[in-house]
Computed example of a mutant assay.
Amino acid sequence: MSSTNSNSNSGSSSGGSNSTSYTITSTGTNSQDNHYCHRESSAGSGYHYSNNDGSYYYSNPNGSTYYNNGNGSSTYTTPSGYQVKK
């Protein structure tokens, strides 16, 4: 099942106001009972996990990643590998 959505990256430390249209290519639950979603856009592919412990992880088409541990701490990693922790 595919659907098109508008994705705003305002929650990641990536600058905030970029909006990208993407198509969800697969969703489901992995063996640890965590939700995942794979998506495609004109910029490339990415995915996210929403974990049972409240944490979540995004892998973006530009190579950046965002991890939130669900307890107030997060790490944004730029495509070049620089990390910003909050």
Rank of each mutant, 00 (worst) to 15 (best):
N62T: 11
T65L: 03
T27P: 01
T27E: 15
N34H: 06
S31R: 09
S41F: 04
N69T: 03
N69C: 01
T20W: 09
N68H: 09
S59N: 13
T65W: 04
T23E: 13
T27N: 07
H48I: 09
R39M: 14
H48Y: 15
S14M: 11
D53C: 05
S31Y: 08
A43T: 11
H35S: 14
N60W: 10
N71T: 02
Y67V: 05
S26N: 11
Y36K: 06
S31H: 07
N9R: 08
T29A: 02
S42G: 13
T20D: 10
S45R: 12
T65S: 15
G72H: 00
Y67L: 10
N60C: 08
S19Q: 14
N52F: 03
S26F: 01
G11C: 08
S21Q: 15
G11V: 08
Y57A: 06
S55C: 02
G70T: 01
S45M: 09
G46A: 06
N60T: 12
S64K: 04
G15A: 04
G70Q: 00
S42A: 15
E40C: 05
H35L: 09
N71F: 01
N7Q: 10
G70P: 01
Y56N: 12
T27A: 08
G54R: 00
S10C: 06
S42Y: 02
S50R: 11
H38M: 02
N51W: 00
G16A: 12
S73A: 14
S8C: 10
E40W: 06
S50A: 12
Y58A: 00
Y47A: 03
Q32S: 14
Q32H: 10
T25V: 15
T27L: 00
Y57E: 10
N71V: 01
E40I: 10
R39S: 12
N7P: 01
Y56R: 10
G15V: 08
S64V: 11
D53R: 07
Q32C: 04
G54D: 04
